[in-house]
Write a protein that binds this DNA or RNA. Structure first.
Lengths: 336, 336
DNA sequence: TTGAAAGCGCTAACAT
DNA sequence: ATGTTAGCGCTTTCAA
């Protein structure tokens, strides 16, 4: 079925290897032969079989992304798809393709092992949410080209890429200090929430840089929900003196925090400023619109794709890096 | 490199075709031979090469999803990834894989043509947002297995699957009528917004079913943004008599609408009820939590995957269907 | 029940 | 600059 390289060769009066060389841009073919072959290819509407090429070349030009794809994942992890979209774009530009594959921590290792052993792809990208020690060990042992999207929560020799949340925290702190705020508060996620912890860490550093410090009574940790944001904000707002600015670790907490502030009849930003991280649609939508340190996760995705291809070409490349693509978006909630 | 079928054959003292038959569960191999071969496979840690199998079998067991993956796509189209996740799950369960491929209306047709001609996949899933007449013509002409995710805006013979927004509208109307509301209003997207139009259409039908009707002065159309939702709601709330319930075509409009209602000091739902479609996180978060007609788009994705595989097996299957997976989630905003 | 052998469509080393 | 040919690793007839 379909036109094969043989048909082209015959029609052009050359051998199949000549056709192959034309297809692959091999230097050794004369201009005129190239032109003639190309002409025939066009006339016969010939396209090389993808699977035959992959098989013969022994390279798939494919990256498999292993990640949690469970229900409501779009909302519970909106960053993930943005990362994947960025990666896809970079890969496609270099004519690699991306296979999307749902997995769980319990299944990921076995899937990865099969993909590696069957040489289903040239590289693996694995979202940190499904990483396990076992999987890390597999990647390290096989030296299979890979990148983990997000820094693993445990030490290992795997390649990973992550957002620099500390630097985002520093940016947030610098902004507030620059606007003249002094009593900065922080409402964050629980201990295991690394994003929140790093943002807090960054804020600490950023304040220190300008000779301010983060008062312990102004720090509250809880669930990343509006309800708990509200609860934490209420605790916070019962302190004396009131903080003059509060940084929320994420949009959900910010939503609750803003509600609490309004319930008390306080004005944002005149009496108290609010800011958060990630430019979700509702940070723009809220009243007043929230200043955020936006994090360009799509860019992290394309960086991941770039690193991955570097690793494919130079299998000994060791990548463990934070990408810093934070961007301060100043809006009304912090500018009085 | 790596263990091949030959190694297994040699070690097991059989021919490679016997090994192949064991791998593929061919009936003709005796129990004992099967057992012996399997044993060797395990010992040698043999995995068949994916690309060799694909090449030899002439089937890729792969579906390519062509869709817009531009910046901020997660927020501008949160449904899309939910659909893809549903599709991936269904495909994976039948050991197909899913290639995610970004495209634009201007590039999609050429990409599709290449995928089809190079037999890069067994089927194509194409998001409606990048559909063109040209692409539709290609799909129809080649009879290549495909499904369009969302109903195309123009007539054609392509296979598609879509959500039944009309039925969702009917459900919304029935709920409000059942709760005793009578003066129903609708704030929707502009004319080209098919979701909104169909939801409106459904509400009309649903109200008619119970002898109510939708007053023209209670219908406002605008942009799907909180800002325009607020504007429309203000227009609406200047009407006499006030509606006693308002259905918003989507969450963004609902957000603005709720703000407008609160600014006027009206109570939800005592003085006016509000509901919308799609169970986005902020419909749960809002004060009060919003009643929504939730649409299980993930289910639409798995249906799409199912249809796609049907079509692959029976290339003449013609699928053009609405899936109805709406689900009323009653919350405070409509129950007084 | 098993094996021999002919592909699948292309690439790439080698020869010319 | 071009052609010959031996794979790539597996599937699948067909014969035994």
């Amino acid at each position: 079925m379909g036109v094969t390289i043989k048909d082209v060769a015959r029609a052009a009066g050359v051998s199949i290897s000549t056709v192959s060389k034309v297809i692959n841009g091999h230097y050794s073919i004369s201009e005129e032969t190239q032109e003639r072959v190309r002409q025939v290819i066009r006339e016969l509407n010939y396209y090389p079989s993808a699977s035959a090429q992959i098989f013969a070349k022994g390279t798939t030009r494919t990256v498999i992304v292993l990640t949690d794809l469970g229900p409501n994942i779009t909302f519970s992890n909106p960053h993930m798809f943005e990362i994947i979209a960025g990666m896809e774009e970079t890969l496609r530009a270099r004519s690699y393709r991306l296979i999307l594959c749902g997995a769980q921590p319990s299944t990921a290792c076995e899937m990865a092992e099969e993909f590696i052993s069957r040489r289903s792809a040239d590289a693996l990208a694995i979202h940190v949410s499904i990483m396990t020690h076992q999987l890390a060990a597999l990647l390290v042992r096989t030296h299979f080209p890979h990148i983990v999207l997000g820094k693993p929560t445990f030490d290992s020799q795997v390649c990973w890429i992550d957002i620099n949340n500390i630097s985002s925290g520093i940016i947030a702190a610098a902004h507030l200090a620059h606007e003249g705020y002094e009593r900065i508060a922080f409402l964050g996620g629980r201990e295991h929430d690394r994003n929140s912890a790093h943002r807090l860490e960054g804020i600490r550093q950023g304040l220190e840089n300008v000779g301010l410090c983060l008062d312990d009574q102004y720090i509250w940790l809880g669930d990343s929900t509006p309800a708990d944001g509200l609860r934490m904000a209420n605790k916070l707002l019962s302190r004396e003196p009131l903080p003059d600015a509060v940084v929320c670790a994420n949009n959900y907490i910010a939503l609750g925090c803003v509600s609490a502030i309004r319930e008390r009849g306080l004005e944002i930003p005149r009496q108290i400023a609010v800011m958060t991280f990630d430019d979700y649609p509702f940070s723009q939508i809220m009243e007043p619109p929230l200043t955020v340190v936006d994090i360009d996760v799509r860019d992290m995705g394309s960086q991941a794709g770039k690193f991955l291809l570097d690793i494919v070409r130079h299998p000994n490349t060791q990548v463990q890096t934070y990408v810093t693509t934070s961007n301060l978006m100043v809006r009304e909630s912090t500018v009085r």
